[in-house]
């Protein structure tokens, strides 16, 4: 059985494939080198960036050392600097955003791929991608005019209901960690949804049918087959979204209240690393202030590098487990 191997005619003088000449070979080599240069430029830029940030913030590191990272005071007038309030603000707003957006995003992706009628799924997917393209300053405006008043209205009842938790105590300013976390959630939601959707679309139909054929409900198929199969991609989506949440500047600056304080309450105004750089860099009078701001920048840069590294590690582990 089996079919005969196709007969390849032996090369004859005239019909033979054209051999590339020396000029084409030189062009090939040039092309390869040009691409290698372009690719190494990426690495070079990243290294240059790190070096630039490190050298421009040397004054802060030599005067304060790593203690800069856990000092709380931030008062440019007395040349007193500490990055902890910004680290805290960035961490809490990003965590809040992930907490809200991850289940919503993955849930929407499951709806779009498994449950929604095809027409609706197409329209909604388009809308999700549109949402990803909204400039962050526009979302910030929406935050200032819609979200902040709404949060201000919601905070007192929330405080009455859940006030036994320190998270929900305090004066209802509107601006603060809660508003910033919510606006960030809106910003990263389309990323999580769009990428999770792409990943869930790659789950092979035979696998889903295999689960259906055993008498699984839709939810059981999603839980038993789709999510395990797509988990690597969903983890990737989550980390991409986290990276964006950590670095997002404009919309957060507009609604967080910009106060370098640390409070357990989600209602209280705070500050993030990117927000303080954006707000103060132009007005930084002294060298110490400038250097401290750049040190904050270096910290943010290092944080995103570490998060990305952890993401790689996690995805590598997930891939090898299956």
């Amino acid at each position: 059985m089996g079919c005969a191997a196709p007969v390849i005619p032996p090369p004859t003088g005239r019909g033979r494939a054209r051999v590339p000449g020396p000029r084409e070979r030189a062009g090939d080599a040039f092309f390869r080198r040009a691409l290698a240069v372009a690719a190494s430029l990426i690495l070079l830029v990243a290294l240059a960036l790190a070096w630039q940030l490190a050298s421009a913030s040397r004054q802060t590191w030599t005067s304060l050392g790593p203690a800069f990272l856990w000092r709380t005071g931030w008062n440019p007038v007395d040349d007193s600097f500490g990055a902890l309030p910004f680290l805290y603000g960035t961490a809490v707003t990003s965590a809040l955003a992930m907490l809200i957006a991850l289940p919503l995003g993955v849930g929407s992706a499951i709806f779009l791929t498994e449950l929604a009628p095809r027409r609706a799924a197409q329209a909604l997917s388009f809308a999700v991608e549109l949402l990803a393209a909204v400039p962050s300053v526009i979302l910030g405006l929406m935050g200032v005019f819609l979200l902040v008043p709404a949060v201000r209205a919601v905070e007192p009842p929330l405080s009455r209901a859940l006030g036994f938790l320190p998270l929900f105590r305090g004066a209802p300013y509107g601006v603060g960690l809660l508003s910033a976390g919510l606006i960030l959630a809106v910003m990263i939601l389309p990323y999580i949804t769009a990428i999770s959707r792409e990943v869930l679309l790659t789950v092979p139909r035979p696998l889903k049918e295999g689960m259906h054929a055993l008498g699984a409900t839709r939810w059981e198929v999603v839980r038993g087959v789709c999510l395990p199969y797509a988990r690597t991609g969903i983890a990737g989506a989550a980390f991409l979204a986290l990276g964006r949440a950590l670095g997002e500047t404009m919309a957060v600056t507009m609604v967080i209240g910009n106060a370098p304080t640390i409070s357990a309450s989600l209602f209280s105004p705070a500050y993030t690393m990117s927000a303080v750089i954006a707000n103060e860099l132009a007005e930084a009078a002294g060298d110490a202030h400038l250097s401290a701001l750049i040190a904050v920048g270096l910290t943010l840069f290092a944080l995103t590098v570490v998060i990305n590294g952890l993401a790689r590690l996690l995805i590598y582990r997930l891939e090898n487990r299956s």
């Binding site: 092979p204 035979p206 696998l207 049918e209 295999g210 054929a213 008498g215 699984a216 395990p228 199969y229």
Partner: peptide, 21 residues
């Protein structure tokens, strides 16, 4: 359909063991 498929099992053209199990 869920109960029906527990009475009527199916084997597919290509083997489709669940890859994460």
């Amino acid at each position: 359909p869920v109960l029906l498929r527990r009475e009527v099992g199916m084997v597919f053209q290509r083997p489709n063991p669940f890859p994460t199990m």
